[in-house]
Amino acid sequence: MAERYSSFAPGGTTWLLQRITAAFLVVVLAFHFFLLHFVNHAADVTFMGTQARMENVGYFLTMVLFLIAGTFHGVNGVYNALVNQGLQGTQKKVVLAVLVIASVALIAQGTYVATVMAGWT
């Protein structure tokens, strides 16, 4: 038999991850909108209320995962849109680096904010 390629081709991995995060986001984004606009009115949000939600470990983890999935899905979508338009070479590498840095910064900041909201700092 031919040599086995056990590693995922890069395009395929991100393609699959984009779909998996999509399925997750569909549910959580709908939940997020429903919770903070219908169950709790956005105008009535206070720090106390936010803290009460964030203190729940399950909610905290869901929100952090929501952030990570959303950032990946969105930034990967932007990157793909640019590749589809013919982005290549050095420009492509620079764009990828900038997007990765922005994503990491966003996730770090968001997670930090969430821990502060939960009162764990």
């Binding site: 031919a2 390629y5 081709a9 890069p10 395009g11 395929g12 991100t14 393609w15 590749v83």
Partner: peptide, 14 residues
């Protein structure tokens, strides 16, 4: 498999 390897490149089916 060889054919799929051509197709699964970044500028292939994805």
């Amino acid at each position: 498999e060889h054919r799929l390897r051509i197709l699964e490149q970044e500028h292939g089916v994805w």
